[in-house]
């Protein structure tokens, strides 16, 4: 059993305070959905959890099985079992996915060829042509192809906890189904814990979250079961947003 604990997390960029006290626990096998309006800080949360340069934690803590992550490099967090599927996976010329599998500390030990055979099988299941593994990662790939490749890395590198930042953006209906089915199987069979950031219910219909959290202005304002996602789908975020009058008043004060 692995547990990612986020306690009273505050973080900022050099110019802006973005996270304002996030509290969340994600355990093995659980699926948590994080939903919120644009600009509420969801992607920032995923980057701060993964230790992306450019953000600083000003208060609170992040632990994985009790180990404090805040002082660790990104790859050290990955080595401990944390994984991030990026909203916009970057293209890297001349670095094929196969090189990542070869170099990653998360790759299973043992015969490389055997591991690669496993990678190819998973790629086939996810509908990724073998050629995509050999050319520069994400290079000249469509949004959907990139997300399939992200999922392949998730499936083969086998982290304990995965953050999926808008995995569904760019994926077509068939792609979404195959990718989410495979991730759901990971949660059931391998006990993967998932924090999924999304704007749409469709991914959640496949992934079936245990909890849904509404994220506004850098913190979770309400949590509930999957019915909360349905409510958001019909009513939007308005009821969770700070009232316009308050904003105006604050604006007046400043």
């Amino acid at each position: 059993m692995t547990e990612l604990q986020i306690k009273d997390l505050h973080a900022r960029t050099p110019t802006t305070q973005i996270l304002n006290g996030v509290n969340l626990n994600v355990r093995s096998g659980e699926v948590h959905a994080l939903m919120g309006p644009n600009g509420s800080g969801k992607s920032t949360l995923s980057h701060v959890l993964m230790g992306r340069p450019g953000y600083s934690v000003t208060q609170g803590e992040i632990t994985l099985d009790g180990v404090d992550l805040t002082g660790l490099q990104t790859w050290e967090r990955a080595q401990l079992g944390l994984f991030l599927v990026l909203q916009y996976p970057v293209e890297i010329e001349g670095v094929p996915a196969s090189s990542i599998f070869e170099t990653s500390l998360l790759s299973p030990e043992g015969d490389f060829e055997e591991n690669l055979h496993h990678v190819r099988q998973e790629a086939e299941y996810l509908g990724i042509p073998t050629g995509h593994l050999l050319r520069g990662v994400n290079l000249d790939m469509s949004g959907g192809e990139k997300k399939r490749l992200e999922t392949l890395q998730l499936v083969t590198l086998k982290p304990s906890i995965a953050i999926l930042d808008e995995l569904d953006s760019g994926l077509d209906i068939d792609g979404l189904r195959v990718v989410s089915n495979r991730i759901e199987r990971l949660t059931k069979e391998d006990g993967l814990g998932v924090l999924v950031i999304t704007h749409y219910n469709r991914l959640l219909e496949e992934l079936k979250p245990d909890q849904v959290h509404v994220f506004v202005e850098g913190r979770i304002v309400v949590s509930g079961d999957s019915s909360l996602a349905d409510e958001l789908e019909s009513d939007g975020y308005e009821k969770w947003m700070p009232s316009t009058e308050t904003s105006v008043a604050l604006g007046g004060l400043s």
Binding site: M50, T74, W75, A78, S104, V137
Partner: peptide, 8 residues
Amino acid sequence: FYLESRGV
């Protein structure tokens, strides 16, 4: 960052 987030 991308490569590091994959454990490299």
